[in-house]
Computed example of a mutant assay.
Amino acid sequence: MSTGRRRIVLFDLFGVIARHQRPGALEKMAARCATSLDTFTTAYWAHRPPYDAGRHTASAYWTDVLRALSRPADAGTIEELRLTDIDSWSRVDDRMVTYVRDLRDRARVALLSNIPADHADAFLAAQPWLNDLDHLAFSGKIGAAKPDPAAFRHCVVALRAAPVDFLFVDDREENVTAAQAVGMNGHVFNARDELSAAVDAWL
């Protein structure tokens, strides 16, 4: 170990502990907007970065999406889409939840997720065990989203550690590469057993 502090395993959320977006959710939202899936998906993701990074509210995000689709941005439609969107990102992998919780016996465990602030609040309400982790960094609340180096530096400062004390786990290679660029160790997540072996070797 490079320092006297306990090592820190820093997890991504979606695609690692939580599941990716619920199948059929984008189709449901596209139908609500009376537009094609491809057109809706393009607008949905094109306006997402400032929402993820906490620079836009949910209302501003959905207003931008609806205007891009030439649809009226009334409060009722925005709220329906917002709640459907939150639900679509609400599923967890129970086996990974158990693994992450058990890992705290051997290391400090933290979370760094690209997630809007209102999504984060809903996720925490449904998964209160997350509050037992050593730190939670949600992009919509810290004002920086991966792969922005500021997101990783936030975790370093918040946990009063050095970058080398971290093993960052994410299913997206570009995010792992960004973590390594600020001095963290990195692992691209594919499966729990593979991750377990990598964590055991690192610890």
Rank of each mutant, 00 (worst) to 15 (best):
S2R: 12
T3P: 02
R7I: 00
F11C: 01
R19V: 12
E27D: 09
A30I: 14
D38L: 11
T39Q: 13
F40D: 09
F40K: 08
T41I: 02
A43N: 04
P49E: 09
Y51S: 09
Y51V: 08
G54C: 07
R55Q: 14
H56R: 15
T57F: 12
A58D: 15
V65Q: 05
V65I: 06
R67S: 09
A68D: 15
A73V: 12
D74P: 07
A75K: 15
R82L: 14
I86S: 07
I86R: 12
S88T: 03
R91H: 13
R91L: 15
V92E: 05
T98Q: 13
T98L: 12
R101E: 13
D102V: 07
A107I: 04
L112S: 00
N114C: 01
I115S: 05
P116W: 11
A117M: 10
A120C: 05
L124H: 03
A125H: 10
Q127T: 13
N131C: 13
D132G: 13
H135C: 05
L136F: 04
F138N: 10
K141M: 13
I142T: 03
A144V: 07
A145D: 02
A145I: 00
K146N: 07
P149E: 05
C155R: 04
V157Y: 11
V157H: 13
L159C: 07
L159I: 02
R160K: 14
A162H: 11
P163A: 04
V176P: 01
V176W: 01
A179F: 00
Q180C: 06
V182A: 07
G183V: 12
F189A: 01
A191I: 01
A191H: 10
E194M: 02
S196Q: 14
A198W: 02
L203A: 06
